[in-house]
Amino acid sequence: MPEEVSRKSSNLVKSYPADLEESLVEGLLNFIEVLKTELLISNESKSKQELVEVQLYRLITENSLECCFPNVETALYIYSSLMVTNCIGERSFSKLKRIKNELRTTMSQNRLNNLTTMSIEHELLVR
């Protein structure tokens, strides 16, 4: 298992060289040991509906372990934001396709772009 953690964390560091350091490998191995201690046991009383990644991030922040595992915290933060970024992109293309099919012949490109933006960000407009 340590070899797999080392290999995968090295790939992650190569993908995000500005955000993560090579010490991520040691940090992850140490974090695994921390998870085997009382901190994990005390965290089990929380909601089981929460994603494991969110529970791990909460474990670091609620126990003030950011200074001990800065790269692990950053890696979890990057991971948690990837899903949101992906969904926003897919939603944009889905909205654009629907708007473009319904209103393609009746408006200019500028108006279509504005309508698409308003449709995607409708939560901001309602407030």
Rank of each mutant, 00 (worst) to 15 (best):
L125H: 03
K100N: 05
K48S: 15
Y79Q: 06
N30Y: 00
I99S: 05
E22K: 15
S108F: 02
E102A: 10
S94L: 02
H122A: 12
Q109N: 14
N114L: 10
E4Y: 09
E38W: 04
N43M: 14
N101M: 13
E53T: 15
L56W: 02
L20F: 08
A75Y: 04
R98P: 03
E4I: 10
N63Y: 02
L40K: 06
S81K: 15
E121D: 09
N101T: 15
E66H: 06
L103H: 08
S23T: 13
L20W: 12
I88C: 06
R127H: 07
M1I: 09
R111T: 13
E21Y: 07
K95W: 00
N71F: 08
N11P: 01
S47M: 12
N71D: 15
T61K: 12
M107R: 03
Q55M: 14
N43R: 15
N63W: 04
S94F: 01
I78F: 01
L115S: 04
P2M: 00
G27K: 03
G27Q: 14
L65P: 08
V54T: 05
L65E: 02
V52L: 12
R98K: 00
K46Q: 05
E121N: 12
F93R: 02
S47F: 11
E4R: 15
E90H: 04
E22L: 12
N101Q: 13
G27W: 06
L39Q: 05
N30H: 11
L24Q: 08
K14W: 00
K100E: 04
K95F: 05
E21M: 08
L82P: 07
N114G: 12
L124K: 10
V52Y: 01
R111A: 12
L103T: 00
V72L: 07
S42L: 13
S119Q: 08
K100M: 00
C67L: 14
R91S: 01
E26V: 09
E121V: 05
S80V: 01
K95C: 11
V5M: 10
E50A: 14
L51H: 09
V5Q: 10
I32G: 11
L56A: 05
S6E: 15
M83K: 10
S108H: 10
L82R: 04
E50H: 06
K97V: 08
